[in-house]
Design a protein around this nucleic acid. Structure first.
Lengths: 231, 231
DNA sequence: ACCCAAATTTGATCTGAGTCAATTGGCTTT
DNA sequence: AAAGCCAATTGACTCAGATCAAATTTGGGT
């Protein structure tokens, strides 16, 4: 669902953190016309793997799950996108993962061709996009280590601390960690089953490391969580 | 070990495939002075995780393993680098993985500062670097699916086919697949143990899918390998 | 060609996480 | 407030892959 363009980049919640932080006031005014705000309801798919890429997306509000499916239905969540994240870049001309809204999401959508044309003579914007890609690549490698070499306990503890850490940048540090995604989402992100995630949460709670609360957890003993995560 | 600069980009084996493919003849002549060829013997470390980044590297010859270690010594290989691959980009100013030579390796080494200065006013080079990063990101996501959601049999079959595929681009299609890396390297790449990798190789051979030969395998039944990989 | 050290394979056993199967708990609808 | 529904939890059992322990093969150096 597209809303009429009654928005301005200057008021944008992610201005400064996002891809557009590399633009000056003049450029921003031109850039403004390229993007339009689009809302998605909980569970809606923003784009699917193998779809031809027609747009890029800048997340403004909400959380998205980014995932790949195997032919038999097994799912691997390759990341969660938060406000400021930029989605849709690829070489093949097709998306290489799918993206769903977890809860209500607002994105700034850019048609591919005009966006690419805009980049053409803005090396600073390209540089910014490159930085974001390199940062993501580093995160992807960290996640490979988690998937390939960590135990279930370590995976869950690492996830909770990492998720909290990501929220710090946007909402400030807090021991209350909202988890908008389902247990199944967490399992598919960590390469575990839903039962193992649930059992591990319960175990962490029994040991006084976390308290399971509605819609998230409360981190009671960050030090012990760190110890579990580090191995 | 550094050799005196008796080389020219125009003769370079990876010219065309590598990062420098985006440069014209004039630029290339200037670029030439930035890089120097460096050789590494088998097993030598080119750079280590957490080292401050002082150089970027363009692989010219040989194979490298790129890996991360956990404090207790567990290792995850995040990729193998082949000629044409560009290494060393990061945001933090420190390498986020280590890189060793597997067999003899030649790289084209660029000091970070002059390279970054050279990029500054060459948006096409930046664009090329960005493309490489985005391609790697896509590969990283594919590998996450493998690590998180595939069985040992699928992992090994997928690895053999994927490795063969990468060699196609450089050496042409062949059913003889050289495997310069050790079984331990393969295990650490696939999130398995060396024993499981070895058993799976043996199993594939027993089923007539591959033949284990000196320094690699021969792919006897690509179709069946594909079937195993796809699940 | 021979020796030693390392890499690989093979075998036996164990276990962490998966699978299968109920419950339980929270929300929404009526 | 009862019923229905889906997500999450819990329990019992299984199994794929890990671990532990030998062989066996390979390769490099003399």
């Amino acid at each position: 669902m597209i809303e009429p363009n009654g928005h301005f980049c200057n008021d944008c919640v992610v201005r400064g953190a996002a891809v557009c932080s590399s633009l000056n006031a003049t450029e921003l005014r031109e850039f403004e016309h390229l993007g339009r705000r689009v809302h998605f309801d909980s569970g809606e798919t923003v784009f699917s793997e193998e779809d031809i890429t027609t747009s890029f997306y800048n997340v403004l509000e909400g959380v998205m799950r980014l995932y790949k499916l195997l032919p038999d239905g097994r799912r691997q969540i390759v990341g969660f996108a938060l406000p400021g994240d930029f989605l849709g870049m690829n070489i093949s001309g097709r998306h290489n993962f799918s993206a769903d809204a977890i809860g209500v999401v607002t994105v700034c959508q850019f048609a591919k061709a005009p966006f690419n044309r805009f980049i053409e003579d803005r090396p600073l914007l390209l540089k910014r996009i490159n930085e974001l890609a390199i940062r993501e690549l580093s995160q992807a490698r960290d996640h490979m280590v988690l998937l390939g070499r960590r135990s279930a306990d370590e995976k869950v503890a690492t996830f909770l601390l990492g998720w909290r850490e990501r929220l710090v940048a946007r909402k400030g540090l807090s021991d209350t960690v909202p988890l908008p995604m389902s247990r199944q989402d967490i399992a598919d992100y960590l390469g575990l089953t839903i039962e193992t995630v649930s059992r591990t949460f319960t175990k962490l709670e029994r040991h006084g490391v976390i308290e399971i609360i509605h819609g998230g957890i409360s981190l009671l003993d960050p030090a012990r969580a760190e110890a579990m995560a580090a191995a």
